[in-house]
């Protein structure tokens, strides 16, 4: 079986497992007034609010995993982008806007960021993908303008947008690092030996 699918299945099992932890939201999500409980930084992205939230994210993860397999993305790229987006991308926003953060959606949007970059392999214009994704991410907030939902919707949109951009930047960074080390590996014979 494809490694990315195994990785995703393992994550799904964790998500489902955590879903059955009693008082999971209270104990494991990232809350502004519980900042001293450091473990929350590691657990919040595995916790889901309710069954709909869980199902949505399982579906989202499955979707990006299947696309990643189709695009022949390496497991290392997929897992590092996914996990780092999940852990890190919401943090700046969380400090600025203070809200309870939980769930895997940022990781999933990070995954979409990675995918948007890898479509380049097939000659797709990346900026078009980024534009469409951004529009979709903010659509919910747009329709919530003027309603009581707006404040929570915009936080969600922004947080997803951060995840998406984080995925793009993180992947950009690792490919830069990789190309530097690749260049080193490719200039062995051309070295100066005396």
């Amino acid at each position: 079986m494809k490694k990315i699918l195994v990785f995703s299945l393992a994550l799904i099992l964790i998500y489902v497992g955590v879903f059955f932890v009693p008082g999971r939201v209270e104990r494991l999500s990232l809350m502004p007034d519980k900042i001293t409980e450091a473990w929350r930084f590691l657990t919040y992205s595995f916790v889901h609010l309710d069954i709909m939230h869980l199902i949505e994210n399982i579906a989202g993860l499955t979707l990006i995993a299947l696309i990643a397999v189709e695009l022949r993305i390496a497991l290392g790229d997929f897992s590092s982008v996914y996990l780092s987006s999940g852990f890190l991308s919401v943090i700046p926003l969380w400090f600025m806007m203070s809200f309870t953060a939980l769930g895997a959606s940022n990781a999933i949007f990070g995954g979409f960021g990675l995918i948007s970059q890898e479509t380049r392999k097939f000659g797709v214009k990346v900026w078009i993908i980024i534009l469409i994704a951004t529009l979709l991410i903010f659509m919910k907030s747009f329709f919530a303008i003027g309603t009581g939902e707006f404040s929570s919707a915009i936080k969600q949109s922004l947080s997803h947008f951060f995840g998406f951009m984080f995925g793009i930047c993180f992947f950009f960074l690792i490919s830069k690092i990789r190309s530097i080390s690749m260049n080193k590996k490719r200039s062995v014979l051309r070295g100066d030996y005396r």
């Binding site: 080390s181 590996k185 490719r186 200039s187 062995v188 014979l189 070295g191 030996y193 005396r194």
Partner: peptide
Amino acid sequence: VGGPIASLHGYMEKVNANVKNLIEEIEE
């Protein structure tokens, strides 16, 4: 291109290169 094998080998270990990388370099 190239040089004494001991020096080459030492440098390859340092940058974690393998023979495939050398062939790619020759192609380049």
